[in-house]
Design a binder for these strands. Structure first.
Length: 456
RNA sequence: GGUGGAGUGGCUGAGCGGCCCAAAGCAGCAGCCUGCAAAGCUGUAAAACCACGGGUUCAAAUCCCGUCUCCACCUCCA
């Protein structure tokens, strides 16, 4: 199993720290505003990683995705809306979880920053004791990480301190690159966002929550740390600095997913070119969206367009059509994954290549269907089912709930059309079909019967 | 200025020294099937001269050098 380690900047042979088990920590959202496509891509990418390690390698995967539910932006957005920040955070988080659910991208654990404040304080104390953090010189309770004290600072992104732009020196810090571990409470901030600490009232800085939560959830050292490419610096660099300065092994490997772009430019909150989840779901169903999100290799950038989404709908439809037809005549049985599929997944999760195998199997299955070779149909169906499980393609995903009355109505129309066909009254038959189409129903005439399904 | 990534058919997107006269999907065309469709199968066009120019090699989309273009990070972001 090869994985591209973005810290080593090379492909590594993946060997779990503890035999049979894998600990993965992926940076989840800061719940400040609604999810956008980029969040979904990251979630799907790491969901596939977890699925493959579980299904393809029989590993016990502990996938942790944090929820950063205390942060400047949350406070700012809440105050702009005149709302309680905690309420906003919960609401946004629910929104995130709803989409993750819809896309089949769930995780083992969802630790919250606000539930780990004591652990963060302990962590910061430890850094101060070890000489890697200091209290601000301006009389506030700000605490900063001392980047100069940590000689490997910059190792994740291969940067030297002197080349970094840094922020303006302020807030009582010693160097531009030093970052806040603890932020002093400021006037006007809600009481509920202020915690006591050995240094005074305040709240945690941005990066410390992840270091503290990896420690609580996965221990001093764990296998993989993941997240979007845009988090490499400063967030992951700083996490790594904190945790290694604290004396912990931290992440053995790093994985970063590529970004979602629109016309070649990164989709981001600040640029305002983000495509909302509503936009996305208005154009395609969840299975197709997930397929699209996985259709480029996880390290490549993924360009968004309406066309590309429509392509995904067609491509998934092809798979789903085969499964539907095949399932009418054969059962899914136990079978091995195709070798090429396994090879592809083992090669740094090459999903596009794996999808090629999936489609080849579908074609073989369709050919078998056309030639009534039910043994081959069953084989193809079983393989497709297993591959879909690895990739998280919900094969029942296109089924819409239909009431008995609606089904009866549709079946009545189909019977009417088939009678017309038997009578060779094709004008009437086509009229009925047009009626069905208008209802959003697609029909398919098979040798001995007519089946129907909701159009995409 | 520093650090990374990318340029492959009409579109999306793999491949990263020989299995590549380049996977897979979408779109197009033709045939089969169908009353006609849909779904499906088969075949297939557009010079895919793999950004461009050199080089290494028996062999390069894949390695090296140079050039151009684009993107990301160094500020909040998956």
């Amino acid at each position: 199993m090869k994985i591209f380690d973005s810290k080593a900047q090379s492909l590594i042979d993946f060997v779990p720290l503890t035999a049979g088990k894998v600990g993965i920590y992926v940076c989840g959202p800061t719940v400040q505003s609604a999810p956008h496509v980029g969040h979904l891509r990251s979630a799907v990418a790491f969901d596939i990683v977890a699925r493959w390690l579980r299904i393809g390698h029989a590993l016990d995967v502990n996938l942790v995705r944090n929820v950063t539910d205390i942060d400047d932006k949350i406070l700012v957005n809440a105050s702009e809306l005149g709302r309680d920040w905690r309420e906003l955070a919960v609401e946004v988080e629910n929104e995130f979880n709803g989409v993750y659910d819809a896309l089949w991208a769930n995780v083992s654990k969802l630790p919250h920053a606000t539930a780990h404040i004591p652990q963060m304080i302990v962590f910061i104390e430890r850094l101060i004791e070890r000489g890697h953090a200091y209290l601000a010189s301006n009389g506030t309770s700000n605490v900063y990480f001392d980047t100069a004290s940590h000689k490997t600072y910059g190792e994740l992104t291969n940067q030297k301190l002197e080349n970094m732009e840094g922020e303006e020196i302020g807030g009582g810090r010693r160097a531009a690159q030093d970052f806040a571990l603890w932020k002093s409470a400021k006037p006007g901030e809600p009481e509920t966002a202020i915690w006591d600490s050995p240094w005074g009232k305040g709240r945690p800085g941005w990066h410390i929550e992840c270091s503290a939560m990896t420690l609580s959830e996965l221990g001093e050292a764990f296998d993989i740390h993941g997240g979007g490419l845009d988090l490499r610096f400063p967030h992951h660099e700083n996490e790594l600095a904190q945790s290694s300065a604290a004396g912990y092994g931290f992440a053995k490997h790093w994985m970063h997913n590529g970004l979602v772009t629109v016309s070649g430019t990164k989709m981001s909150k600040s640029l305002g070119n983000g495509v909302s989840v509503e936009d996305l779901f208005a154009q395609a169903n969840a299975v197709a969206i997930r397929y699209w999100l996985a259709s480029a290799h996880y390290r490549s950038s993924l360009d968004y367009s309406a066309i590309v989404l429509a392509d995904a709908v067609s491509a998934v439809g092809r798979v789903l059509n085969f499964v539907r037809r095949a399932a009418e005549i054969v059962e899914v049985s136990k079978t091995e994954l195709p070798n090429e599929f396994v090879q592809a997944m083992n090669n740094d999760f090459n999903v596009p290549e794996a999808l090629a195998v999936l489609h080849e199997t579908v074609r073989a299955g369709n050919t078998a269907l056309d030639s009534d070779d039910s043994a081959s149909v069953a084989e193809a169906l079983s393989k497709v089912t297993r591959m879909a499980e690895v990739l998280g393609i919900d094969l029942s995903g296109n089924e819409k709930v239909t009431s008995a009355e609606t089904a009866e109505l549709i079946e009545g129309l189909i019977a009417k059309r088939n009678q017309a066909r038997a009578d060779k009254d094709y004008a009437l038959a086509d009229l009925v079909r047009a009626e069905l189409t208008a209802m959003g129903v697609t029909i398919e005439d098979q040798a001995d019967k007519t089946v129907w399904m909701w159009s995409n």
